[in-house]
């Protein structure tokens, strides 16, 4: 089973939820947790474990200036502005390149070949015998995280239960993470900002036809508007995590609150069992 944890808005506590959720489930069965928030991966801050690392690459063009006659067709074709052709020199902007391969196809002199460029890495960390953490990390200054998300998802293939932590927002990386999953947990906070962004996220999962439920984080009990929206949108609210200074403090130090507060471990496991019933999977 594949469960994605997503949120429309940044800073709702999505990663805190994912880490505690996965850790609590792993007390009862094997889990692989995948950090797909490749621009700001931080699940690893919650767990200390040795890790292995593999590089993620994407193809980029190499120009053979012996064959090139500087006709400029490649630069003209590239819709990302990654190639500028000077009278006797080619300039290539690797951070603008999307690896579409078009320049190589259009070159009339066959002067363009391809090489692999490292844009990030995947960490694989066995936290303990029941929990494995896979982290996608996009290198600083790289604009496109999709290949890193794909590589992190691939590394988790073949496991019975995988939990994916998506990046915030509703842009391409989130879609890439959500596609092909069985259930989405939307983490929100009960402010108009949180609700506004929850609406956008709910719209995405509805379009992708994936069942979803909501967790309200930092709830202060005044959740009427969020509850009304969820009723209207047919989304069940699975859990409310109250605003609590102790939880906030544990979290900003990088500790799991479900370790210090064992009652939460049970609640997270019950939530998992509930999702299993909804999706028809066995816990």
């Amino acid at each position: 089973m594949k469960i994605v944890v997503a949120s429309g808005k940044g800073g709702t506590g999505k990663s805190t939820f994912s880490a505690n959720f996965a850790w609590s489930i792993s007390r009862g069965r094997d889990v692989v947790l995948v950090d797909c928030d490749v621009e700001e991966p931080n699940l690893h801050l919650f767990f200390s474990a040795g890790k292995s690392e593999s590089g993620v690459t994407m193809p980029i063009p190499v120009f053979d200036t012996g064959k090139c006659d500087f006709c400029g067709k490649c630069g003209e074709f590239c819709r990302y502005g990654a190639i500028a052709v000077l009278p006797e020199k080619i300039m290539f902007f690797d951070d603008l390149c999307h690896s579409c391969g078009g320049c190589r196809i259009i070159c009339p002199k066959e002067a363009i070949s391809e090489t692999e460029r490292v844009i990030g890495k995947v960490w694989d960390a066995p936290v303990d015998e029941h929990l494995r953490l896979i982290t996608g990390v996009l290198d600083e200054g790289e604009p496109n995280g999709i290949p890193v998300i794909k590589a992190a998802k691939e590394a988790a293939e073949g496991n019975d239960l995988v939990i994916y932590d998506a990046s915030p927002g509703t842009a391409c990386p989130v879609i890439e993470t959500i596609e092909g999953s069985d259930y989405v947990v939307l983490v929100t906070e009960s402010t108009p900002f949180g609700l506004h962004d929850l609406r956008l996220a709910a719209e995405v999962v509805r379009k992708l036809c994936i069942p979803a439920g909501v967790v309200i984080n930092r709830s202060d009990g005044e959740d009427d508007e969020t509850e009304a929206f969820c009723r209207e949108a047919g989304l069940d609210i699975h859990m409310k995590i109250p605003f609590d200074r102790e939880i906030a403090r544990l979290q900003s130090r990088g500790d799991l609150f479900s370790v210090a507060m064992p009652e939460w471990q049970e609640r997270f496991f019950e939530l998992f069992e509930d999702i299993c019933i909804r999706t028809g999977g066995a816990p």
């Binding site: 630069g75 590239c78 502005g81 300039m91 603008l96």
Partner: peptide, 9 residues
């Protein structure tokens, strides 16, 4: 996207 290099071109 890529307006900087394209304009430089």
């Amino acid at each position: 996207g890529g307006v900087g290099p394209r304009s430089a071109q």
